[in-house]
Amino acid sequence: MDEQEIGILRLGLDFSQPLYEQIVEQMRGAIARGEIALGEKIPSVRELAHGLKINPNTVMSAYKELERDGLTETRRGQGTFITSAQEKVDDFRSEWAEQVIDEFLGKMENLGYTVDDIQLVIQRKKEDKE
């Protein structure tokens, strides 16, 4: 998967997966990790569509999703920007983390793990890393 640099974004698409989700996920990640600075202008729909060689409708729906997340804002006549409010990014990040954990717990419970079992597994992973 080749990464493309389009303006301030670095994105790489895998054409065997839905494209819209990949754009949303990669941009969410980059914003949450602070790789894209607050208040930065992001490429226009047209620029990103050209850069990635994809349908502008796909880019448009990804941008709408990020705006719903509170991570970007559109200023009329100026384009789309990363939010300048750190707390919006923090809120999104913790909500997202919460979702990922709930999903993880759900799957583990499905396998018959209790929360105590899970804690033990995590403890072991932590020791492996150290």
Binding site: F15, L19, A49, H50, K53, I54, N55, P56, T58
Partner: peptide, 28 residues
């Protein structure tokens, strides 16, 4: 492909494209 991307941006149209090899049109 770039010209087609621009056409979609302006879009009021339906574009039917036949191809037996996908080339770079995959994302279009």
């Amino acid at each position: 492909i770039d010209a087609l991307i621009d056409r979609v941006t302006e879009r009021e149209q339906t574009i039917l494209i036949s191809t037996h090899e996908i080339y770079e049109a995959e994302g279009l």
